[in-house]
Design a binder for these strands. Structure first.
Lengths: 207, 207
DNA sequence: GTCTATAACGAGATAGAC
DNA sequence: GTCTATCTCGTTATAGAC
């Protein structure tokens, strides 16, 4: 079927669709699902609201797509993490930190707060995100403990959930005080409880 | 000034004002500040939106009053907690749990998620809540550690912030899965890290 | 795939009678 | 202190031309 073929290097995803999702995600992470509108996206992208509805008929549909995309990307980022168990966890925390320093919340932490107002398809997609996150964490916690690189007692599932709760909560609070360092401090505490040593204090200008 | 006196037992706060705040708080804890409207409150209380505006000219003003009231009540509840250091912390956690089992978020945890969309007076009031909460926690953590009833290393301030982050985050996640037990499990982990022993497993019907 | 135009509704808020 | 009536604006969504 040669009629449908494109040059091998061409982007697969329609450009507009991608830009919509990108902008919508930023708005959602900054202001929440109920805190932005089609008009906001349209203004930034300089297209009309009607065009947006062509790509995503309803806002619920857009929201579901946002969570699905976020989950896929996050999952890919997780699978790309490597190093010692301690370093993997450090890099895991860094993923959250990178979001926070751009003045954003974790998309799914934000949506979790709005849970009771979300359409059902978004709720389901949201739980999938946390389930996958949790599964990845449990796996690496257990491997780390088995290897003697991590120290903690009891259920790895509970530990994974405490980590997620602690990190999402710390993001929430750091944002309310506009002090990203609050997140870092709490994250270090959580890691320390797993036996991941704190980094040596960074001396000024030593990069 | 006898003209202004009322019978000693009469309620001080106008009844309607109180009912508005009560209903608004419930709505805010369930759906967030951006998730309810004057129309919602009016419908439940069977008064008109115009009447609501008489008591709270703007929604921002209502929101600020909600946080101030919540802070005062929470503070009073904290000061009323007593017992051993371990039991005080257990009862502290129970305060959160009591909110969650009524399908609500902590009002201020909810507002923290919406922080970037909140009017400035609400933001300030919100930080006051967390500051007071933190001060109370630090005080009791330090007393407990000094008395040998709690065990943890390092900064009490950091520990207080980790506790708050963990509890708020755990509420968020428990709500998204509609499984309050998730909150309890994470809370127990956090307490265990402080040296507060887990309760013996409750046997069925021995309540 | 993007547009203009508009529908249909709900939001926060105000004026002024009672 | 509560009401009716109304205003203005923003929201999601649709119809139909290009």
């Amino acid at each position: 079927m040669p009629m449908k073929e494109r040059p091998a290097m061409a982007p697969k995803v329609p450009e507009t669709l991608e830009r919509i999702l990108e902008e919508a995600q930023q708005l959602a992470q900054e202001r929440g699902f109920n805190g932005f509108s089609y008009a906001d996206i349209a203004a930034t992208l300089k297209i009309t609201k009607a065009s947006l509805h062509y790509h995503f008929a309803t806002k619920a549909e857009l929201g579901r797509a946002l969570v699905a995309r976020y989950t896929a990307r996050f999952q890919a980022a997780l699978e790309a993490l490597d190093g010692t168990p301690a370093n993997i966890l450090r890099r895991y925390v860094k993923l959250y930190e990178d979001v926070l320093v751009r003045d954003r919340m974790c998309l799914c932490g934000m949506f979790a707060a709005e849970y009771s107002t979300l359409p059902a398809p978004m709720r389901n997609e949201l739980r999938r995100f946390f389930d996958k996150n949790e599964a990845w964490l449990v796996r690496h916690l257990e491997e780390g403990r088995a290897a003697g690189a991590l120290q903690y007692e009891g259920s790895s599932l509970e530990m994974a959930r405490m980590l997620t709760a602690g990190l999402e909560g710390a993001m929430l609070l750091a944002r309310s005080f506009e002090e990203p360092e609050r997140f870092t401090a709490t994250a270090e505490r959580l890691l320390a409880d797993l036996g991941v040593p704190r980094p040596r204090k960074r001396s000024i200008g030593s990069g």
